[in-house]
Amino acid sequence: MGEYLMLIVGTALVNNVVLVKFLGLCPFMGVSNKLDSALGMGLATTFVLTLAALSGWLLEHGVLIPLDIGFLRVLSFILVIAAVVQFTELVIHKTSPVLYQVLGIFLPLITTNCAVLGVALLNIQQESGFMESVLYGFGSALGFTLVMVIFAGLRERLALMAVPVLFAGTPIAFITAGILSLAFMGFAGLSPK
């Protein structure tokens, strides 16, 4: 149990998928203008990432290894991720039309969120077991959501600040992201390794 907790904390904070591994930067910059949509995006990605990590492990150990066709890994993972994203889109359209409208194009674009494919592939690379894979996916997604929410909160406040004209808009957002990344590097001290 403690091991699993360590795994979640480790993936969410120490090896944060956005700010330490620099995966999934596109929704990180794209959907972080408003706190609500950032949280919605984070939750949708959490759902997709966890399911993708789970189905990626099943696919790897159920199909790819027994048939010895590891060269199809990326292709089949993308196929599964696309299907999971489509499913998520259906669920969100049904349960929350407002969120569906707010997320807009970024919802189907979760398919191309490199964090989703990246985590599924990293799981295979690290030869993790089933529970570890799922928790790794879930922890990464938690970290993603956390960073999205923090960054959206920062950007909402930044919008009210008197930022010098040269830095206004996207440049100050990039600088903020850099400082946030520096802050997350500090979590490296938590790591037992």
């Binding site: 696919l59 199909v63 048939l67 066709i69 060269f71 199809l72 292709l75 089949s76 196929l79």
Partner: peptide, 11 residues
Amino acid sequence: LSAIASLATLG
């Protein structure tokens, strides 16, 4: 064969 079959089945 197994590549074609597995991808087609998956799809």
